[in-house]
Design a protein around this nucleic acid. Sequence first.
DNA 1: AGCTGCTCCTGGTCGC
DNA 2: TGCGACCAGGAGCAGC
Length: 278
Amino acid sequence: MPELPEVENVRRGLAELVIGKTVKDIQILWSKIVVNPDEVFLDGLVDRQIIGVDRRGKYLLIRFDHDLTVVSHLRMEGKYEVDDQSAPVTKHTHVIFEMTDGTQLRYLDTRKFGRMQLIETGQEMTVAGLKTLGPEPTPATFDVHQFYQALQKHHKAIKPLLLDQKVVSGLGNIYVDETLWLSQIHPETPADLLTQAEVQKLHDDIITELQLAINSGGTTVNTFLNATGHAGAFQEMLHVYGKKGEPCERCQTPIEKIKVAQRGTHFCPHCQIRKEAR
DNA sequence: AGCTGCTCCTGGTCGC
DNA sequence: TGCGACCAGGAGCAGC
C-alpha cells in the first residue's frame, strides 16, 4: 500500500515523465474514482498543461496551468503509468489522460479505492482529507512538543493515532509497525501513557524511518511500482512487518501478529512491552 | 469531542 | 476441482 515514501517516489517519477505534457482528452472508465462530476473534470482539464507534481502527506497534487490542481490519493493500490496510446489498456485502468504527444497518463487501481478531484490551485484546504492533515514528518515541520501534546489528549492505543493523518501525516500500516518496533513501544499502549522521552524517540524514529524509506525508493509489497516502473528496495529493510514467527532482530523472540483497531499489527512481545493503565 | 464501526472493492486464501 | 466465505485495508463519514 502506498504510504508517504511510496507516494513521494511516485511524485518524482511523474514529475520526470509528465511535466510539460498537455491534455488532449480524458477517458473516465470508472466514474467513482473522480470526485467531481465527469463533465466538470473533463471540461476543466482538456487543453491544460501539466506544470508540476507536488505531494502533501499521501496526497499527490498534479499541477496544471490556469491554476488547476488534481488532488489524487492512491489509497491501497492506485498507481500511475505513462504509456504510448497504442499500449493495450488493462482491466484495472480507470482514468486515461490522453496527451497531445501521443502518450497517455493512466491511473490503475485494482480495488478502485483511490480518488482524484479537480480543484482550483490554492483551494487545497477545501478537500476533506487535506484540510485536517497533520504536519509532514520532517525536522522542519514535525514539532515534538505539539506531538506530545496531541498524544496526551488521547487515551486510545498509540497505533490508530499514528494512522490518523491529523496527528502526523504520511504513516500507514507498514511504517507504523516499523517505527513502533524501532521505538520499542507496544502498539496498544494508551497514547497518554507515553513519557516525553518515549515520544521524543518515536518522533525521531518516524522522521528517520520515512526519510530512509524515501531514499530506498519505497517499499514494494505485492506489486507496488513507482510511475517509472521501478520497484522499491525498502522491503528488505523491514524489521517486523510481514515477519510473523520470525525472530526479532534485537532479542530473537518470534514476532507476533495481532489485531489493533481492526488492523493487522506486527510487533515483538519481548522488546515492545505494553504499559497498563495507571 | 472522542471514538467505533461501516463503506468502498477485488484478488487471494482457506475449508469443505 | 469448484465454490463460497472471509480477509486485507486508507480515509471519509455516520452515529453514539
